[in-house]
């Protein structure tokens, strides 16, 4: 697994070399740590139930990893943190009201089927956490789309159900959304802080950006995928998002709502399932953005980040193979 490095920096030195301190485990645990702010915001808005759901996902993931590796007599690698991260991301993609069997079953699907049956870490085609969530969404459509209103206090026991901003936007339009939130500025601030209905880890954009910024500084992720992804979404939302014709959409609402931020910074940048060529990463981001907006604006679901990333995951090998830079010094193959 490659750690993102500065490009065009080729240091040639004589041995002995100092080995990099980065290991798979270190990266996985750091990424998990960087998700902490977003998770804390989720718990703050949706109460202890959010901890319960996420904990079940993590336990389910770790157990599935252990079980499959025991059954296939491979070395057990639950301490490398990759199953923990999958569980954490899956949990953060669930509504806090999910009944207990949803996290357990979908984390099993995520780790046992989408990851271990494909050969384990590094061999999976699809992002395991997203496969788990897609399975849950298709299997329990009602439970997975019942959102509760965020309540800052820890009393969310009789929480009201409500629609997500994207759901409102899709079903009833921009004006209704403004009615609910007040004016545009309030809408943007609320979305930025995360005071809205949604999956428990996706609501707070600012907390996600905080974690993502940390990863960028550590160079665990690069800007290519998220930035091209977000830019594509913004442009398409501006051009096609409005009801009154072209160029009347509101890109900020589309950028700040739904699972876009979590998806763009944490899911699309998964080392295993995204292209490793820089040009390919930009193409991957554009593709994700295009598919996301296609689903958001034209398809049956209000949110399309999950399916967009999964679909682009299929294309990753193709992108990598076709955009690999040529090795210099090789002779060109004669044309047949």
């Amino acid at each position: 697994m490659a750690v993102a490095r500065k490009e065009q920096e080729l240091v040639v030195s004589v041995s002995p070399h100092i080995r990099s301190e980065e290991t798979v485990a270190r990266i996985m645990w750091t990424v998990s740590l960087s998700l902490l702010p977003a998770f804390v915001m989720g718990v703050y808005y949706f109460g202890p139930r959010a901890i319960f759901v996420t904990a079940l996902c993590i336990v389910g993931s770790l157990f599935s990893e252990w079980l499959v590796q025991k059954m296939t007599s491979r070395p057990v690698t639950i301490s490398d943190g990759s199953a923990f991260l999958t569980g954490l991301l899956l949990g953060m993609n669930m509504p806090a009201t999910a009944p207990f069997y949803i996290p357990l079953v979908s984390s099993f699907v995520a780790v046992a089927i989408a990851k271990q049956l494909f050969g384990g870490l590094g061999y999976n085609i699809f992002n395991p956490a997203l496969v788990g969530r897609a399975f849950a969404l298709i299997t329990w459509p009602r439970a997975m789309t019942t959102w509760i209103e965020p309540s800052a206090a820890f009393v969310g026991m009789d929480a009201k159900t409500t629609a997500t901003p994207l759901g409102l936007l899709k079903e009833e339009g921009m004006n209704r959304l403004l009615e609910v939130f007040g004016d545009r500025i309030t809408l943007y601030t609320q979305l930025l802080i995360g005071h809205r209905a949604g999956s428990l880890g996706e609501v707070s954009v600012i907390a996600i950006l905080l974690g993502a910024g940390f990863l960028l500084i550590k160079r665990y992720i690069t800007w290519h995928i998220p930035v091209s992804y977000l830019a594509t979404v913004a442009v398409l939302a501006w051009v096609f998002g409005g009801k009154e014709g072209l160029f009347t959409g509101d890109p900020l609402v589309h950028l700040l709502s739904g699972g876009l931020m979590l998806g763009a910074w944490y899911m699309a940048t998964d080392y295993v399932t995204c292209p490793s060529v820089r040009k390919g990463q930009i193409l991957f981001g554009i593709g994700c953005g295009f598919l996301t907006m296609l689903i958001r604006l034209k398809a049956g679901y209000p949110e399309g980040v999950m399916f967009a990333i999964l679909l682009m995951n299929c294309l990753t090998p193709l992108i990598d193979r076709n955009l690999k830079s040529r090795v210099f010094g090789e002779r060109k193959e004669a044309k047949k």
Binding site: V105, F135, I138, T139, W140, P141
Partner: peptide
């Protein structure tokens, strides 16, 4: 509750 995904 059956798993809806299985009939799809």
């Amino acid at each position: 509750k059956p798993l809806l995904i299985m009939v799809m």
